[in-house]
Design a protein around this nucleic acid. Structure first.
Lengths: 210, 210
DNA sequence: GACCCCATCACATCTTCATGCTATTTCACA
DNA sequence: TGTGAAATAGCATGAAGATGTGATGGGGTC
């Protein structure tokens, strides 16, 4: 597995390269002080690296620009963002651009190694504080916002419909009569102002329910 | 570290509990067949478990409901979703509710152990296929990837279905016979491996068409 | 020209759904 | 203790959908 590091601060870059190139898991470890240097080098290569570890706050081409450039060339190359910041904005932009990992520079070297291997195997990996931010980004979404006034049973029925189940199957699943399912669906239709299964599924998947 | 498993299928639950309770890393491993049983038990406990592993498709209180209940009581308890499905909808809802991990039931036991330990240390952990879905959720939405082989006419029909139109209305809209609409829909069902309008709408809105 | 895919249409049959009406039980709350 | 909302259930009827079988014509390709 071939690894690339892009980091403008000499000490950090050299530290990483020294440590990581000693690891037997990595075939090669190339390091660059800027996105420009990296892409110049890349143009002369025949194969893409497996994982790119890049600083987010690079001078010139930013780390986020790097992700996009890399992803445009090779979808399968994984990108890990390295940063001293843990602000939501950069995290979100990085994820949007296609980064699969996000770790703080304060992270110990052997954990960084672990993160690289994890991500190379297709998993997502984030520093604890980052993971929390990402999760709370979608986070406990205040539901009062869109609040429909569907009851719990009605919501269960909606779930069944979204899963493509027939009245009969929903009835079996919830252990109630098919007539009761009908009754609930009638109420759902009235509350949502629709009159077909399809519309309920649409509304549900568009997030217009709850 | 105290662990809880919530899973309705006896064999799976027992398998997990047997394996995990043999691991020295876990102080205790309690297992329950339903969210109700878990919360009953929890009410009598003095401390929250560190990690809860829960099935997403539980009868009664769903796995997603469990997350919300748990998080309301204790923010620091991590929740891992266990599932046979890898559809975007459930993943997204789980993440919204506060789950930090998401693994498929097909995952080997020792990887499940790894995931628990990873998550206990505050990291996010997801099965490869899940991680990919989450990332591409924000991600650079390339459409060529998922390429179904629906024809243009078939796609027009799908759009009609998603809009909640009946066969008749679709026929009118596209200026073709209702029998033709039927024929197209038959072909769509075969290509998508489904057999109801609802499933087509689901797939379409989940981005699994095109 | 033979072949295949797409689009078009028909008809028959069985299942599922939508909707109108009615009714009982349970449970919270006033 | 009565009121109301929610969940339960039944029956009936017409509309919509799912599925099998079959057919015609236009565009490509080998």
């Amino acid at each position: 597995m071939r690894l690339v590091i892009i980091e403008d601060i000499d000490e950090i870059r050299n530290g990483y390269q020294e440590f990581l190139s000693l690891q037997p898991e990595f075939e090669s470890v190339d390091a660059f002080p800027s996105g420009e240097d990296f892409f110049d080098w890349l143009a002369k290569q025949s194969a893409m690296p497996g994982v790119v570890l890049t600083d987010i706050g690079l001078p010139g081409i930013s780390g986020i620009d790097c992700i996009q450039g890399i992803k445009r060339i090779s979808e399968s190359t994984e990108v890990i963002m390295l940063t001293v910041y843990d602000d939501s904005d950069r995290i979100f932009k990085s994820l949007c651009a296609g980064a699969t990992g996000y770790i703080l520079k304060a992270t110990p070297l052997n954990e960084i190694k672990t993160s690289i291997l994890t991500i190379a195997s297709g998993h997502a990996y984030m520093s604890p504080s980052i993971a929390r931010k990402v999760m709370t980004f979608f986070g406990p979404t205040k539901k009062e916002e869109t609040a429909n006034d569907l009851t719990n049973k009605e919501l269960e029925i909606v779930r069944g419909l979204v899963d493509g189940l027939s009245y009969k199957l929903i009835a079996d699943k919830l252990n109630i009569s098919i007539n009761t399912v009908r009754q609930h669906i009638r109420n759902i239709y009235k509350k949502l102002q629709v009159n077909s299964k399809g519309e309920v599924i649409s509304k549900s998947l568009k997030g217009e329910i709850n």
